[in-house]
Nucleic acid binder design. Structure first.
Length: 559
DNA sequence: AATCGATGGACCC
DNA sequence: TGGGTCCCCTCGAT
């Protein structure tokens, strides 16, 4: 049967429109012998009437017309009467779903109490009931180190320099160089490793031959700051020389290559135990592996540290007692271990969460607190000294939902904060800032649950899930999509810029029309044009050291 | 400016 | 325990 013959056996199709549609109703009310596509954006067609059977050979007039409803349908719940999505730079939630921020039903993010004050409804810190003598000693030691007046937080709130579209895929992790203050390393979804000297802005390299897919984590070894250890979803642990880009493989969990997705092992969590010279790595099946950094080989047996078959995404050693290991993963737990007595089921503490745990970190100086980020949109604080590890001492509602296309969000400590209370994390949901939908980076005081600062830049329209604070300087590094940003506190930033004005560099790319050409004319202020703001326009101009690259030109492979 | 696709986890049975 | 299905603020390419 030809298409034409078949079509002619179709009954009349009636289009039923929403009342608020602008179109005059008469022109499209009835359409003969054809199914009409909706020409209105965001409309979905649903056939309301009876189904049509293909093989009915029919006489022309006897059929009831098919009614196609073009009523506007919510893209979230598929019901009519409301619509979810962006209206300009403001996102309108679907009222039928639980709040996208706190996950409770009955309201949306617009009037969620946590949107206004994040500390609303946080669980107050529970006091420890049981005390042994060791606790008192530890507490006395710690109390002395805790300053009585909390120093003011210094917030790097202004973009100082950036490399736009530096990586060819989204950024997955960041690490500052341990001794060279101005060097930032970045890993991406493709497995490439970026080395960027943001002090010189244009000094950048991307090594593309280290891993074949997601570079999930990296760490510097304490012995040599010229080499970095990386783990990847390709199942290998590599050690790379930053000067040459030459890398050696320390471990390969898939020596026989691809045998199907059920057997392919991926590496996510990694940590360096300096005392023992061990690289600790964790895979996607729940196992921990150890690599001797001196012998460059695997050591000991693999230990099941999380539910079998689930990803272990994070590992962290206690800063004061490096034998104390913290792990977290997809089995909804963060777990504490003593690596001297490591075997399955030997976990010292299991910290329960409602959903997957993206990260778990000991506090940077005393190691007595733990901050975890879980995809139930809560940051949890656990206190091993002043509270129990059975329940979190605080839960902070914060938007950092899971999205398969985003690198998982992780709350990261400020290593310079002596009070161990400042944490940085990117925000998923956007706010309408002067007509632009921006996703800020939040600084949270975990001792109060309060939002200390939200930093954003009209040029960064993408979500910034990867953030790292510098160990010595007041510098924040952000990985947002494929770009990197360096933030400094406002005053400082200006001073640096005056000095470094000549270092502003804009490369010619497909987008070059937007940026103009490179100019060494000082008063030609082309340095801060917006890059590609989709949801925002009319933004104020800013000054920054910015390098625009394309993915092709950024690849610099060395054998 | 619309559309597409890559692709992780939850939840269902 | 495993396969199928669904999915809410992505992002960049066409």
């Amino acid at each position: 049967m030809s298409t034409r013959a078949r079509r002619s056996s179709f009954p009349k199709v009636v289009i039923e429109r929403d009342t608020d549609t602008d179109e005059s109703s008469d022109e499209e009310e009835e359409v003969e012998n054809d199914v009409v596509e909706s020409d209105d954006e965001e409309e979905e067609v649903e056939i309301e009437d009876q189904k049509v059977e293909d093989d009915v050979v029919e006489d022309k007039k006897g059929k009831t017309p098919i009614t196609i409803s073009l009523k506007k349908v919510c893209k979230v719940c598929k019901r009519t009467g409301h619509q979810a999505g962006f209206q300009g730079a403001t996102y309108i939630d679907c009222p039928m779903k639980p709040c996208f921020l706190c996950k409770l039903p009955g309201h949306t993010t617009v009037n969620c109490p946590h949107r206004v004050a994040m500390e609303f409804g946080v669980i107050p810190a529970s006091r420890k009931r049981t005390h042994n003598s060791l606790d008192y000693v530890f507490e006395r030691q710690l109390r002395r180190g805790v300053p009585s007046i909390k120093p003011a937080f210094v917030i790097p709130d202004e973009v100082n320099c950036a490399v736009i579209r530096y990586h060819s895929r989204r950024v997955t992790c960041l690490e500052f160089h341990p001794t060279n203050n101005n060097v930032l390393l970045s890993g991406d979804k493709k497995g490439q490793l970026g080395v960027w000297d943001f002090g010189k802005v244009y000094e950048k390299t991307v090594y593309g031959n280290i891993h074949t897919c997601l570079l999930n984590n990296m760490k510097f070894g304490p012995a040599n700051d010229g080499t970095v250890y990386t783990v990847s979803s390709d199942g290998t642990v590599n050690c790379t020389d930053l000067e040459t880009g030459l890398s050696t493989s320390l471990m390969d969990l898939n020596p026989n290559g691809w045998q199907g997705r059920n057997s392919w092992r991926m590496l996510y969590g990694m940590e360096f135990n300096a005392e023992k010279g061990l690289v600790l790595v964790a895979d996607s099946f729940g196992y921990l592996h150890m690599v001797d950094a001196r012998a460059n080989s695997k050591t000991g047996d693999s230990v099941l540290i999380h539910k079998k078959g689930t990803k272990v995404v994070g590992l962290h050693c206690n800063p004061l007692q490096p034998d104390l290991l913290l792990s977290c993963g997809n089995d909804h737990f963060a777990r504490m271990w003593d690596i001297r007595h490591l075997e399955a089921e030997s976990c010292l503490h299991a910290l329960p969460h409602k959903r997957v745990v993206n990260s778990a970190y000991f506090s940077p100086s005393s190691g007595s607190k733990i901050v975890t980020t879980s995809i139930d949109n809560r940051i949890r604080v656990w206190d091993s000294i002043f509270g129990n590890l059975d329940t979190p001492s605080r839960e902070i509602v914060h938007s950092h939902d899971f999205n398969r296309h985003l690198t998982p969000f992780r709350a990261e400590w400020d290593p310079k904060d002596p009070s161990e209370s400042l944490v940085v994390i990117g925000r998923y949901i956007s706010e309408n800032y002067n007509g632009a939908a921006l996703h800020p980076i939040d600084f949270i005081d975990i001792s109060t649950g309060q939002l200390v600062a939200e930093v954003m830049d009209p040029n960064i329209t993408t979500i910034s899930p990867v953030n790292k604070l510098h160990t010595r300087d007041d510098v924040l590094a952000t990985g947002s999509s494929r770009s990197l940003f360096i933030w400094r506190p406002k005053e400082k930033s200006e001073a640096v810029q005056e000095k470094d004005k000549s270092k502003i560099m804009v490369c010619n790319t497909k987008n070059s029309k937007k940026f103009g050409n490179e100019s060494d004319n000082d008063d030609d202020d082309d340095s801060g044009d917006d890059f590609s703001s989709k949801k925002g326009k009319g933004l104020k101009k800013k000054k920054a050291n910015i390098v625009i690259t394309t993915s092709k030109s950024s690849k610099k492979k060395k054998p």
